[in-house]
Design a protein around this nucleic acid. Structure first.
Lengths: 148, 148
DNA sequence: TTGCAAAAGGCGTATATGCACCTATTATCC
DNA sequence: GGATAATAGGTGCATATACGCCTTTTGCAA
């Protein structure tokens, strides 16, 4: 059982935990020159293959405009390319560059070490259960603001 | 079971969930003119009574400098006061103003409605279990970055 | 075919987040 | 009591987050 009573607010509870975990992962990933969100973007892009901003944003449960701005440092550093799609000139195709793949290869062992350390401290079973719960939560429609 | 497999990355899983839930709470709290972090700050300050920046930041699992900057819009709008502590001139005492208490009173029913809607959609038992798990996680020392 | 709705994305603005480095103040130890 | 360490907080910088409004482009239908 937790040493202190849990927060009554679900939102505060998850935000506090997100800060706690992000600071840990950020410190572990720092030698790669990537932040945790940047690593997530590159890793998901590698996994998905070339994608549009809307697609990748939905995948990351991120606002479209947030992702659009987060792409800029990555494009500036040559880790990904943003090219207009000739098929549909509204779209922009995001692709991982060779430098982006190299950077990801540098960061991946750091990420794996962070994952292992997290599981060692928090418990591998607890970690897996938490990730499953959070996947359910993300898939849960919490309702539109105007509804009851 | 979740419709899609959970993220392998614990950090991404919790950040995605934090974004998902924060967007929901932000929309519900918007009529009060407070963001979710602002509501958390005022509510915790009311619960704790007058506090220093370091104390409140630790309570919120937030970097000291992050809290310091988040206070500014609240001070600007007169919801809290930042006064030097005559006992120790390094410290600054944070206190909720009458306007801050009024704003909190306005926001609280919106927050309660958000909590109720969250529990209705995600499940009250699942919600309580998640908050307990996250409290344990926040209390878990994940280790210093230089350690194995 | 043209006229309008929908989709994709950018931009302005505001807040949120935290690291590295700095100053001011207090506590401690000879 | 004076050097020094510890503490409280601020600043500069960079990235992260998202709402509202806008333009461009595409799809659809009368």
């Amino acid at each position: 059982m937790p040493p202190r009573p849990p927060d009554p607010c679900s939102c505060l509870a998850i935000r506090k935990a997100a800060r706690h975990v992000t600071q840990f992962y950020d410190a572990r990933l720092a030698p790669s020159g990537l932040t945790t969100p940047q690593f997530s973007i590159l890793a998901r892009l590698r996994h998905r293959g070339p994608s549009t901003i809307n697609e990748l944003a939905a995948d990351l449960v991120m606002d479209r405009t947030t992702l659009g701005r987060n792409l800029r440092p990555l494009e500036r550093d040559g880790l990904l390319a943003i090219a207009p799609d000739p098929e549909d000139r509204r779209r922009r195709a995001l692709t991982l560059t060779a430098a982006g793949q190299d950077r990801l290869a540098t960061a991946r062992p750091l990420w794996q070490a962070a994952q292992a350390a997290f599981d060692a401290r928090f418990g591998a079973e607890a970690s897996a259960a938490l990730r499953a719960t959070l996947a359910t939560l993300v898939a849960t429609d919490l309702g539109c603001p105007t509804a009851g």
